[in-house]
Amino acid sequence: MFPPGVGPAADPTEGTAPDRAIRSFQPRRSRVTDSQRQALLRLWSRWGLEIDGRTRLDLTALFDGRPVVLEIGFGMGEASAEMAAADPDTGLLAADVHTPGQGNLLRLAERAGLTNVRVANGDAILLLREMLPERSLAGLRIFFPDPWPKKRHHKRRLIQPAFVALAASRLAPGATLHCATDWVPYADWMLEVLSGSELLANTAADGGFVPRPAGRPLTRFERQGLAKGHEVRDLVFRRLP
């Protein structure tokens, strides 16, 4: 799709030992528009990075000293760009495998004059495990991950005890883990798994869900779900000292 060394790699881990863990995502190389492709060609070398599992990221250098929030799975990037614009003093490290979305987020960031956005291509679990130091993140956002609704596919869900333990270890004390889903059974699953972490505390006074925080924009996907009668649930947990 792109010349060698230009734009996101089809497989950032090529040439390394394969990660045989069960994946919670399917790489999607759907049609890339000309504007998305041009954004990737123009901006990837400056604002993009590969999740290769080999490079330890220096977040201080990458974001000019800003605190950094990691967003896993950003779709087409509209909400991500809006949140980054609303909080320019925080760096946004946005990880996804969807090439059109990567190009669109870069295009939106450039158009808005944002300097606090970096786009990561590849498996976010590998990013957390191999490339980010402990206690390095000011926040983690996971909005509308694939619910894998069939019981036989529940093992593919991103929110699992092992993942939560890894993610919590990368959060700085006081940082928040914010999840949202429009699949109520998955919301209940998330609540159970997150509540089982010894490193996280639920910010909801009743130990359940929270109202949608004002800082989380409605996404196109969310609007579509609401139009179908889906119920959206937000969970915000805080990293303990």
Rank of each mutant, 00 (worst) to 15 (best):
F237I: 02
G229W: 02
G225Y: 02
G215S: 10
R220Q: 09
V236H: 01
R233A: 04
R223K: 15
E222N: 13
A227C: 03
D206F: 11
F221E: 09
G208T: 08
A214T: 11
G229E: 10
R223D: 08
V210I: 15
P213E: 07
L235T: 01
H230V: 03
R239I: 01
F237M: 01
P213Q: 07
P211M: 05
T219R: 12
G225F: 05
R212V: 09
P213C: 08
E222S: 08
G207V: 15
G207W: 10
F237Y: 08
G207T: 06
E231G: 00
L235S: 00
G208F: 11
R233W: 03
P211W: 05
P217Q: 14
L235W: 00
F237C: 01
Q224N: 12
H230R: 15
G207S: 08
E222L: 04
A227D: 14
H230E: 14
F221C: 12
R212P: 08
G229M: 07
R223H: 12
E222I: 00
P211Q: 08
G225V: 05
E231V: 07
L226Y: 06
E231C: 04
E222C: 11
L218V: 14
P213G: 08
G225M: 12
R212Y: 09
P211C: 01
F209P: 01
P217A: 14
G215H: 12
Q224D: 08
G229T: 05
T219M: 10
D234A: 03
R212Q: 13
G207F: 14
G215Y: 12
G208M: 06
G229N: 05
G208D: 04
F209N: 00
G225A: 09
